[in-house]
Simulated scan of single mutants.
Amino acid sequence: MNKTIEWIKRLFDKLKPLCGYFKVWRELSSLAVGLILWIHSAVFLRWIDPTTGMYDAGVFQVYLFAIIGIFVLHGIVRILMKLIWPTSEHYLDHHFQEDFKTISPWQKLKLSTSIFFAFLFAIAFLARTL
Rank of each mutant, 00 (worst) to 15 (best):
P50G: 03
T51S: 13
T51V: 12
T52H: 10
G53M: 09
G53T: 07
M54W: 11
M54A: 11
Y55G: 09
Y55M: 11
D56L: 01
D56P: 00
D56K: 05
A57V: 08
F60Q: 05
F60D: 04
F60A: 05
F60N: 06
Q61S: 13
Q61K: 12
Q61V: 12
V62F: 00
V62N: 01
Y63R: 05
Y63M: 09
L64G: 03
L64C: 05
F65M: 11
F65C: 08
F65E: 08
F65H: 08
A66Q: 00
I67G: 00
I67W: 03
I67S: 02
I68Q: 11
G69A: 11
G69F: 02
I70R: 03
F71V: 15
F71L: 14
V72D: 07
V72G: 05
V72L: 13
V72E: 05
V72S: 08
L73H: 09
L73Y: 09
H74L: 15
H74M: 15
H74R: 11
G75Y: 06
I76E: 06
I76M: 12
I76Q: 05
V77I: 15
V77F: 15
V77W: 14
V77Y: 12
V77H: 08
R78W: 14
R78A: 14
I79M: 15
I79F: 15
L80F: 14
L80C: 14
M81W: 03
M81V: 07
M81T: 05
L83E: 15
W85E: 08
W85V: 06
W85M: 10
P86M: 08
S88M: 13
S88V: 15
S88F: 13
E89R: 09
E89D: 13
E89G: 09
H90P: 01
H90S: 05
H90I: 03
H90C: 01
H90D: 10
Y91A: 03
L92C: 07
D93H: 05
D93W: 05
H95A: 11
H95S: 08
H95K: 08
F96D: 01
F96Y: 09
Q97T: 10
Q97L: 12
Q97F: 11
Q97K: 15
Q97A: 14
E98C: 07
E98F: 10
D99K: 04
D99I: 02
F100G: 01
F100L: 09
F100C: 04
K101M: 14
K101G: 14
K101C: 14
T102Y: 10
T102Q: 15
T102A: 14
I103F: 07
I103R: 02
I103Q: 06
I103L: 06
S104Q: 07
S104E: 11
P105D: 10
W106Y: 13
W106M: 12
W106R: 04
Q107T: 06
K108V: 05
K108Q: 11
L109Y: 10
L109N: 09
L109Q: 08
L109H: 12
L109W: 11
K110L: 09
K110R: 10
L111R: 03
S112Q: 04
S112L: 04
S112G: 06
T113G: 02
S114Q: 08
S114C: 07
I115N: 00
F116E: 06
A118M: 08
A118Y: 02
A118K: 01
F119Y: 07
L120G: 00
F121P: 03
A122C: 02
A122K: 00
I123D: 00
I123M: 04
I123C: 03
F125V: 01
F125H: 02
F125Y: 02
L126G: 00
